[in-house]
């Protein structure tokens, strides 16, 4: 257990936005990440936020954490360098965050860029993490349609938490008020793209539905429209060279019409 004491998990939290009212709140996925962290015995949990010092951050404190380290950043800044610098100083064993933010670019790239800069592996779409033997962690990953995959991962690593992970606990007013938003001074790096961005409300992405070819009854059409067929075709490339793998991906993208056909193959 004495070994456990030294384990540190850092949860990266952002300011979310309610989908209906647009008001600031704790982000759903980030709070699930915090919930996951709070449920891991033997870890000391620390919160890290880069951006503005919004009162909505207190909702994370209301879940029972004493403080959040706030790296104040102007809205035009790229938060990744700041996060990476803070994480380097702090050297946690584990970094958790949501899959994508509810505001801003919401590209879902932040965890990848942070992991890349730290040189750590990233495990996406996690729903639970438990300690295995031999110092590894058993990480349960959510796959489409309720499937799960168990991975063994060695610390340190970055994990993004899937919306299918356990719902965040209630945020209580008292602890939220008493908790501290601790400003940590870090340099900020401007995001060159920030000024060119144009924001618009997200739209639901159209879902690809399998065409009901021989559907004769309404039930069949319904089934075709709702049941996602198990992926057919596809290939698993393990031993192939990097070039072969790359060209397989490229071919798929061309076939799907993601990339214009005139690119050379």
């Amino acid at each position: 257990m004495s070994l456990d004491k030294s384990l540190k998990v850092r949860v990266l939290v952002s300011v979310g936005q309610h989908p209906k009212s647009g008001r600031e709140r704790r982000a759903d996925q980030d709070s699930r990440a915090l919930e996951l962290a709070l449920g891991m015995p033997g870890f000391s949990v620390g919160l890290l936020h880069a951006g503005s010092e919004s009162p909505a951050l207190r909702e994370y404190l209301g879940m029972g954490v004493k403080a959040i380290d706030v790296l104040k950043q102007p809205s035009s800044a790229d938060v990744v360098p700041a996060l990476v610098q803070a994480l380097r100083n702090d050297s946690p064993d584990l970094v958790l965050c949501g899959t994508r933010a509810e505001t801003g670019e919401a590209s879902g790239m932040t965890p990848y860029r942070v992991a890349n800069a730290l040189g750590w592996p990233l495990v996406p779409a996690v729903v639970s993490i438990s300690r295995g033997s031999d110092g590894t962690y058993e990480v349960l990953q959510a796959l489409p349609r309720g499937q799960r995959r168990l991975l063994k991962v060695r610390t340190p690593f970055v994990a993004t938490v899937d919306p299918a992970a356990a719902e965040a606990r209630q945020s209580a007013f008292g602890p939220a008020q008493r908790g501290q938003l601790q400003a940590v001074a870090v340099a900020s790096v401007a995001d060159p793209a920030a000024n060119d961005l144009e924001f618009s409300p997200a739209r639901k992405r159209p879902k690809r539905i399998a065409a009901a070819r021989k559907a004769t009854t309404a039930a069949e059409r319904f089934k075709a429209a709702t049941v996602k067929s198990a992926s057919k075709g596809g290939q698993v490339l393990v031993k192939e060279t990097a070039a072969e793998k790359a060209s397989a991906i490229l071919n798929l993208l061309v076939a799907e019409g993601v990339i214009a056909v005139d690119s050379p193959s």
């Binding site: 029972g64 209630q170 209580a172």
Partner: peptide, 28 residues
């Protein structure tokens, strides 16, 4: 509710809705 955050049932969700949308069901 205010110190322990253990409102049972749909309590947590309802209160969050009231905070974020001023109505208990999270309507716009």
């Amino acid at each position: 509710t205010l110190e322990k955050g253990t409102t049972p049932g749909k309590g947590s969700e309802t209160l969050q809705n009231l905070i974020a949308t001023d109505n208990p069901h999270g309507n716009d």
